[in-house]
C-alpha cells in the first residue's frame, strides 16, 4: 500500500479524490443544482445498490467458473446451463416444500453431483485438451438448454422471497429531502441479505484456498500436478471436490437469480456471458479478481441502463476491451 503510494503519487491522489467524491455522493444530501445535472439521488443510489447486489450474484456464478478454470484449466462452458438448472431445481423445491433455504441446499447438492458427472465423463477423459473440453461443454449446454425448454417451457418462473426476508429495509443513507424532512433509502432486504451471503462465501473461499491444508494442496496442484501426486495427495479426488463445489455454486447462484429476477430460457447464456466477462476482466483463477470484476460489471450494467439505456451493453464491453488492451491477463491474473 505505502509502496504503491510512493511509486504512483499522482494515481494515488486521483484514487483518493474519486473515493472521497463517491463517498460524499453516497452519504450527503445532493444540492438542487447537482440533482438537475445528474438526476435524483434516489435513482443514483438505486443504481449503485442494484449494481453491487447484481455484482454479488455475478460473483457467485463466476467464482465457481474461475475456481474450476484456475485450478484445473478446464473451461466449462456448460456453467450457464448448470446455473439455469439450479434455478429450476430451486424453484421446484421451494414450490413443493415451501422452504426457501432448503432450495439452496437441494440446488447445491444436485448441481454439485452434475458437476462430478461432468468431471468424470468429460474432463478426466480429455485432460489437457482444452479445446475439445470447450467444444464438448458447448454441446452439453445446447442439449441441456433444449431439454430444460422441453421440461419447463418458455415461460419465466420467479422463486418467492420468504416472509422473513421480504419488504424493504431502511438504511441510514440520505436518499433525498421532502421539504425539510430527510428521506432515508429503503432497499429490499433480500438483496442485502444475499450481498452479505456472497461476501461471506467469497471470504470463506479465499480463506479455504489460502489458509487451509486442502487449499494449499489445491494450489499446489495448479502449479505442478506431478509434485502434488508425489506427496501422496489424491489429485483426482481433490479435483472432483473442487469441480463439485464450483458447479454447486452455480446451482446456488441459480436460486439467487431466480429470487432476484427470474428463471427463464436464455438466462443460461446471459450468466455464462457474465461469467466470461467477469473472469476476463478479473483474471482467470483469482477469487479476488472475480469479486472485483463482478462488482465492476454489475455497476456498469446498472448505471448504463439508468443513464444510457440503449447502450448499456457497450459499457460492459468497454471495460473488457480496456482491460484486455492494457492487462491481457486480467486485473488480478498472474503474469
Amino acid at each position: 500500500m505505502t509502496a504503491f503510494v510512493q511509486r504512483n503519487p499522482a494515481w494515488s491522489l486521483i484514487i483518493v479524490v474519486v473515493a472521497a467524491a463517491l463517498l460524499w455522493a453516497i452519504i450527503a444530501p445532493w444540492p438542487p443544482g447537482f440533482e438537475e445535472v445528474f438526476g435524483r439521488k434516489q435513482i443514483f443510489l438505486n443504481a449503485l445498490f442494484n449494481g453491487i447486489t447484481l455484482g454479488a450474484l455475478y460473483f457467485l456464478v463466476a467464482s465457481g467458473f474461475t475456481l474450476i478454470f484456475g485450478l484445473m484449466k478446464n473451461v466449462n462452458l456448460a456453467h450457464g446451463a448448470l446455473y439455469l438448472l439450479g434455478g429450476y431445481i430451486g424453484y421446484e423445491v421451494a414450490d413443493a416444500t415451501g422452504y426457501w433455504l432448503f432450495s439452496f441446499i437441494a440446488a447445491f447438492v444436485i448441481i454439485g453431483l452434475a458437476g462430478i458427472v461432468l468431471q468424470y465423463v468429460v474432463f478426466r477423459r480429455m485432460e489437457g485438451e482444452d479445446l475439445r473440453q470447450t467444444l464438448v461443454t458447448i454441446g452439453i449446454s445446447i442439449v441441456m438448454a433444449d431439454l430444460m425448454l422441453w421440461a419447463w417451457g418458455g415461460s419465466a418462473y420467479q422463486i418467492l422471497t420468504p416472509q422473513w426476508l421480504s419488504g424493504p429495509l431502511t438504511l441510514p443513507i440520505v436518499a433525498g429531502m421532502r421539504g425539510d424532512e430527510v428521506v432515508y433509502l429503503r432497499y429490499p432486504f433480500v438483496r442485502l441479505a444475499i450481498l452479505v451471503a456472497a461476501i461471506v462465501i467469497g471470504v470463506l473461499m479465499w480463506l479455504a484456498l489460502n489458509r487451509t491444508k486442502i487449499g494449499m494442496l489445491i494450489r499446489a496442484g495448479v502449479d505442478d500436478r506431478d509434485m502434488l501426486a508425489a506427496t501422496g495427495a489424491r489429485v483426482q479426488l481433490v479435483f472432483v471436490i473442487v469441480f463439485a463445489f464450483g458447479a454447486g455454486l452455480a446451482g446456488v447462484a441459480g436460486v439467487v437469480g431466480g429470487t432476484f429476477q427470474s428463471v427463464a430460457p436464455g438466462e443460461d447464456i446471459r450468466f455464462l456471458l457474465a461469467s466470461l466477462v467477469v473472469v476476463i476482466v478479473g483474471g482467470m483463477g483469482s477469487i479476488l479478481g472475480a469479486a472485483i470484476g463482478a462488482v465492476l460489471i454489475g455497476l456498469a450494467e446498472q448505471f448504463g441502463s439508468v443513464y444510457f439505456p440503449t447502450y448499456s451493453v457497450v459499457f460492459t464491453f468497454m471495460i473488457m476491451v480496456v482491460v484486455l488492451a492494457f492487462r491481457p491477463q486480467g486485473l488480478m491474473g498472474r503474469g
Binding site: L131, V279, I280, F317, Q329
Partner: peptide
C-alpha cells in the same frame, strides 16, 4: 491472448 481465451473473448 491465446488458445481457449480466444473462444471466450469472441463469444463475449
Amino acid at each position: 491472448t491465446r488458445g481457449i481465451y480466444t473462444i471466450m473473448i469472441t463469444l463475449a
